[in-house]
């Protein structure tokens, strides 16, 4: 990285990506399950168009954090601002309405359905026809279905899964299932895409593919990506900014380089004494 890049650091990330306004701002989030503190006083923000990673050792609270963002868990303390507006308590399905899509650590696809149908469910919210139009299979419902199907085919092409379009996802190998999971989230045309350990359990080749897709999504669609990952190496390569959690507390926040050199982070990952 040369000096001109450094000077414009406010607008562009180390990875050279444009960073916009703060889209999601989390302030002093604390989450408890009974007596167990899952998250303690965590604050950080997410900027538009960036790839934001949340990392940490096992049990650090990464998934809890994601579920807070997603509206599945409701923190006892703290405030969440979405595009400057404070978010009230919400139902899990409402995150999708706000343009937040997610993938799952332990793939949660609709196993009995084909790849196409799975991705089509991502278009669900964008379909406007009502129950009766659909039940009677009227013209508008049919046209709407076709329009969305075209969009889904684009995503299928983008993720290079044309050859398995009609296969039931239950019969697919793990790496491809992960890709379908990503496709379904993409079909929602989200503003924020939450990826829960997208590389978990993958071999090197699959990991490289997934990295490429994540970067392509960021570049082509400008989608804000929040990424939870265990694998430090991967995260450092593709993220613009990294939050590090340990035992439910934030111990680091910054560019990959800053985080890499943070003594607390090194201790958490390698044990103290290093």
């Amino acid at each position: 990285m040369d000096m001109t890049d450094m000077n414009s650091a406010a607008a562009t990330s180390p990875a050279g990506r444009r960073q916009g306004e703060v889209i999601l701002d989390l302030q002093n989030i604390s989450l408890r399950f009974g007596g167990v503190k899952a998250l303690t006083d965590i604050s950080f923000n997410i900027r538009e168009h960036e790839v934001r990673a949340i990392i940490g050792p096992n049990g650090a609270g990464k998934s809890s954090m994601l579920n807070v963002i997603n509206g599945v868990y409701h923190p006892q303390e703290g405030r969440i601002f979405f595009r400057g507006e404070e978010r009230k308590k919400m139902e899990p399905h409402m995150a999708a309405l706000q343009g937040i899509a997610r993938t799952f650590q332990n793939i949660a696809l609709f196993k009995g359905m084909s790849v196409l149908d799975n991705i089509m469910t991502g278009r669900n919210l964008k379909m406007k026809c009502n129950l009766f139009q659909q039940a009677l299979w009227l013209g508008p419902a049919l046209r709407e279905e076709i329009a969305h199907r075209e969009k889904v085919e684009e995503i299928v092409d983008f993720l290079e899964i044309q050859h398995i379009r009609k296969t039931p996802v239950g019969a697919l190998p793990y790496g491809l299932q992960k890709r379908v999971d990503l496709g379904r989230a993409l079909a929602m045309e989200p503003q924020i895409l939450l990826l829960d350990e997208p590389m978990a359990g993958m071999n090197v080749e699959e990991k490289q593919d997934m990295c490429r897709f994540i970067l392509d999504i960021s570049d082509q669609f400008g989608t804000t990506i929040v990424l939870i990952e265990h694998d430090m190496g991967v995260v450092m390569d593709i993220s613009d900014r990294v939050v590090v959690l340990d035992y439910g507390k934030k111990i680091g926040d910054g560019t990959p380089d800053e985080v890499r050199n943070n003594q607390d982070v090194i201790n958490a990952y390698l044990g103290s004494g290093h």
Partner: peptide, 30 residues
């Protein structure tokens, strides 16, 4: 059969049957 296989609501119903959490994540209200 048509309702279940060919309409968006039918697909949503099948989706809910398969996985509650995932269905919610794409905005299908349970």
């Amino acid at each position: 059969t048509v309702f279940f296989q060919k309409t968006a609501i039918g697909r949503a119903l099948r989706a809910v049957a398969d996985d509650h959490q995932a269905a919610q994540s794409v905005g299908i209200p349970l």
